[in-house]
Write a protein that binds this DNA or RNA. Structure first.
Length: 281
DNA sequence: TGACACCTGGGT
DNA sequence: ACCCAGGTGTCA
C-alpha cells in the first residue's frame, strides 16, 4: 500500500499524538508478524513495553518507533499495513486483522490510548532492534538514499549504471528508497519520460527533471495525506487526497492533461504501468 | 532479470 | 469464478 508520502504522513500524524506517551502493555495476537526471531520471554520488552515514546523515524517506506531507552521497532507496511490510534474506550471501525496492540498512557495517567498494528494481507511486518544505530547499520544501509534526500550526482550514478528500464529502476529500493508504483508513474509523466527508457540512456537534463518532479510530487502528496486507492488510512482512520491529482495512475483510457492523448496501461516488470504515449518520450 | 509466491478482499 | 491491488523476498 504505502509509498513514501503515505508513510511520512503517518509518521507526522503519529508524532503529533504519541511522543511522550508511555507504553504500558503490549498484546501480540499474531506472533508471525514479527520479522526477527524474538524468544517469547523477551517479546514484550522487544516490542517496547515500559518505554516512553521518544521519536518516529522514516527511511523510504520504512517507519521506526524509538523509545527513551533506545529500543526501536521498525514497521514495514507492505501492501495493507496500518497503524491506528484509538481512544480507550472506543468502538474500532476495523475489528479484524489487529495483530499487535500497544496500550499508551500519558504521564498524568488519564486519556488511555491504543496503537494498533493492522495488516489484513500480512505482507508487512515488525522488526524489533536494540537501537537506531543497529537499525541503520543492519537494515537501512542496505537500501538506497531516501527519495527526498538523494542528490543529483548519486541519482545520476545509480541510473547510469543499469540498462534496465527507468520505471523498474525507480521501484528498486536499493537505487532510491520510497518510490512505489503510483509515484514512479506520476514522476515519469511529469518529467515527460517514457517508462520504457533504458536508465542508462537518460541525459543529465532528463535526470534533473526526474529529481525535480520527484521532490515536487512527493512533497505535494505528503501535503495531501498521500494517495488512497483502497486501503491507505492514517492513524485517525482518514484517507489521503492525492489520488484526485493523479495524472496517469489509475486513469487508463482517460486523456492526458498535458497533450490530450489517451493514457496507456500495460504490465512492465510485473507491475501495471500508466503513461501517455503523446508526451512521454 | 523476470516469474512466482506470499495473503486477503473487493470489484466484475 | 476470476482478476486485480500501493510491496518485497526468493528462485531459476
Amino acid at each position: 500500500m504505502p509509498e513514501l508520502p503515505e508513510v511520512e504522513h503517518i509518521r507526522r500524524r503519529l508524532s503529533d499524538r504519541i511522543i511522550g506517551l508511555e507504553i504500558t502493555r503490549v498484546l501480540v495476537r499474531r506472533a508471525d508478524v514479527i520479522r526477527l526471531p524474538v524468544p517469547v520471554k523477551a517479546r514484550s520488552k522487544a516490542l517496547l513495553r515500559n518505554g516512553r515514546v521518544k521519536m518516529l523515524h522514516r527511511h523510504g517506506k520504512k517507519l521506526a518507533l524509538e523509545i527513551d531507552d533506545g529500543r526501536v521497532v521498525e514497521f514495514g507496511l507492505g501492501m495493507s499495513g496500518a497503524l491506528l490510534l484509538e481512544q480507550v474506550p472506543s468502538i474500532p471501525a476495523a475489528t479484524t486483522h489487529r495483530h499487535v496492540i500497544w496500550s499508551l498512557l500519558d504521564p498524568c495517567g488519564d486519556q488511555p490510548m491504543r496503537l494498533v498494528w493492522r495488516d489484513p494481507r500480512r505482507f508487512g511486518g515488525l522488526r524489533p532492534v536494540d537501537s537506531m544505530r543497529e537499525l541503520r547499520a543492519r537494515f537501512w544501509s542496505k537500501i538506497g538514499p531516501d527519495a527526498l534526500e538523494i542528490d543529483e550526482k548519486t541519482l545520476a550514478r545509480n541510473l547510469n549504471e543499469t540498462k534496465r528500464v527507468i520505471k523498474t529502476v525507480l521501484l528498486d529500493q536499493r537505487v532510491l528508497a520510497g518510490v512505489g508504483n503510483i509515484y514512479a508513474d506520476e514522476v515519469l509523466h511529469a518529467a515527460g519520460l517514457s517508462p520504457m527508457r533504458p536508465a542508462d540512456s537518460l541525459e543529465r537534463t532528463e535526470i534533473k527533471a526526474i529529481l525535480r518532479y520527484l521532490r515536487r510530487i512527493l512533497d505535494q502528496a505528503i501535503e495531501d495525506g498521500g494517495s488512497t486507492i483502497r486501503d491507505h488510512q492514517d492513524p485517525d482512520g482518514l484517507p489521503g487526497g492525492f489520488q484526485a491529482r493523479h495524472a496517469v495512475y489509475g486513469r487508463p483510457g482517460g486523456c492526458c492533461n498535458r497533450c490530450g492523448e489517451l493514457i496507456q496501461s500495460e504490465q512492465l516488470g510485473g507491475r501495471t504501468t500508466h503513461w501517455c504515449s503523446g508526451c512521454q518520450n
